[in-house]
Amino acid sequence: MKRRLLLWALGGALSGVIWPLAGFAFANVEVGQVLQNEDMPTLGGGHAPFLSRKALANVFIFFRPNQDHSLATLKAMALCEKEFAQKPVRWVAVVSDSAEKAAVQATVAEAGIQMPVLVDEGDHLYGKLGVRLHPVVGIADDKFQLVAYVPFHEINYCDMVRVRIRKALHEVDQAAVDRVDNPPKALMPDDIPGAVAKRHVKLGELLLRSRRWDKAAENARFAIEKLPAYAPAHALLGNALAGQGRCAEAGKSFETALRLDPANQAAAAGRKGCAGK
């Protein structure tokens, strides 16, 4: 009993250290648990192992024929398969032996995958892992630990699988996975903080070149109202005022700009130009 407890504790500790449990995956196997390898018949009539020790990423795709999501997934994975062709990634597709062979062959041909297609006799592997959804992609490392479980997603599925393969290859970290899973909001240009103010400063700078001092000052004031701590806006206002011969007022704007950004060249040059006026 003591020995069993010790083994259980050791196993639990190791799984936690190597691959912290990342949540429920297949019905019977969670991310972080070790999968059993097995030799399986292939669609072509031979045999192939489910997993390989030589691969840093063992990618397996459970699919069904005559199903739109499976076909779309296999097509996407066919591209991924090529993309990772030179890397230690091993791909297999797995299909139930209850699926009609001709339909499976047609799906495989249409998808263009090159990976072996393993036939799961009596749904043995399906039952062992508890595969409830199709398609689903699993990724195991070279120690056969399940490191990712990715059920079908209509949006960004390929990106989600790709980044997890790259993580298994130690090319990216968890932060990269998180960025793909939770991509930043694609703000509209006007909603990007500071964008509108900065745009008006750029326009104002162009107006300065045309000696349109009043319009340049107008744009500068608008920008300052939107983004008060933006040094170039104050520098612009200073130079627009200086252009109008209002160096006393301009000086205050140059000082503000240089306080916000001591390296602001437009403000430094403007202040120099106003010196003594």
């Binding site: 209509e154 949006i155 960004n156 990106d159 939770n182 991509p183 930043p184 909001k185 694609a186 703000l187 509209m188």
Partner: peptide
């Protein structure tokens, strides 16, 4: 940052 030029996830 998302397919179909979606602003955020669906």
């Amino acid at each position: 940052n998302i397919e179909k030029l979606l602003i955020q996830l669906p």
